[in-house]
Design a protein around this nucleic acid. Sequence first.
DNA 1: GCAAAATGTGACGAATCGTCACATAATGAC
DNA 2: GTCATTATGTGACGATTCGTCACATTTTGC
Lengths: 242, 242
Amino acid sequence: MNTLTRRQREFLQREQLFLDTARQILRSDGAAAFTMDRIAAQTEYAKGTVYKHFSCKEDILCALCHESLVQLEKRFRHALTLEGNHREKMMTLGTAYLLFTHHFPEEFDILIAVRTNNVRQKASPDRLQQMLEADQRVHDVMQSLIGAAIAAGDLQLQADISLDEACFGLWAMAFGLLALAPVHDKMEQHDQMASPPLPPIQQIMLHQMNLLLDGYRWHPLSTEYDYQASLNRILNHMDMFQ
Amino acid sequence: MNTLTRRQREFLQREQLFLDTARQILRSDGAAAFTMDRIAAQTEYAKGTVYKHFSCKEDILCALCHESLVQLEKRFRHALTLEGNHREKMMTLGTAYLLFTHHFPEEFDILIAVRTNNVRQKASPDRLQQMLEADQRVHDVMQSLIGAAIAAGDLQLQADISLDEACFGLWAMAFGLLALAPVHDKMEQHDQMASPPLPPIQQIMLHQMNLLLDGYRWHPLSTEYDYQASLNRILNHMDMFQ
DNA sequence: GCAAAATGTGACGAATCGTCACATAATGAC
DNA sequence: GTCATTATGTGACGATTCGTCACATTTTGC
């Protein structure tokens, strides 16, 4: 038996409806079309009702971001089930992140926008906290993998680097690559039409992660193992998320 | 003799006044106070006049971003004059970036916001192009350093990694670290009050760059040289920018 | 069946964007 | 110097969107 009353359940359901609608608007018509009125109109509720759930627009953004992070966590957890060594699993995490941002560029835009003070100041503390916790859970998946690699002897962190810091560094690298990739692509296109096309972001990510992980001395090193060859297996493994 | 007429000069001067004012508003009162009306009022021009210069709000953002990138380029060029090996110079670039973002967090917020499609779609193509070019010039500084390191034999890129890609990877790492650092700090604070304080972002950046550059096999490696000891020298060198 | 509490509404004021018809000033031809 | 033409400057305006609130409706508990 459910511990919630019908009304409470309805409330939660409605909240979900608002979020689903908001996300759909964002995906199909972009950030410009993302207005409170539009959400209200499309769900056939009044705007006041939307505000019963969310303190402001940025609050919805944070809620969406929270959901995205949950999605990402799901993908990350699946990524860890890949058959392979720990470093391949780490690469799978990177790939999962990459696929996610490419499939839902608008969502990734939110993940970026949420980094600015402006958004964070407006959103409600509760929602912000929830988001941080989801963020933490994503990190936890990475941490568990790094921990496993250490336990298995594939990796040995330098004394002055904590597990958390290692995790943060890898995360930041992936985020930076994905956030800057679109612009980088554009610059390349403008610069030189005739030159060979830049290796796609996927290739870049493989390279850069290999370099960073080699820096960590995470075995087997890229000189000892053909990670390029793992790529198809990894992509196959993540295929179920389209 | 100036090739511009008085009016053209006045026009440019006024444009600069608008930009300076916009930046000042942003720094002192934050993004929320950043409105076209406010800029017009504070410069004692009419709003229409502002729109004679900028197609929209996002256009100003891009112009500010452009200026910030020019600033950054200046600091980067100074960073290269450090006495030391090439890798220390690269670390100085990272430090310059870090100091810049810490001194002007609002400006960095712009640099982040400008990554989202929403902003890029609204800004005028001209302004966007200008910004990309400034971005490119910053990259060029990095590239020249990497090139010098290669020429000096400190670094040898793998065959499948272009100079441009290497540059992009380093840039992305730094950007990611700096963009995510504030949130990371907050998460740490929430999680565990009693634990030792996280190494500040400066320390993290040193570590992560060391790891990545070790991955590149950029000599001298962090195991062969005490880069921790270089830090003060680097900070001193960049002191002139406060 | 009714009072109190919870929920839902949409008109409203405020803020801001970007435009435009008109005002004012500068320029240059004569 | 005058005047037509061009360039520049203005701020009222319509449109959009945010977030609020007094009131309407529904549900709940008794």
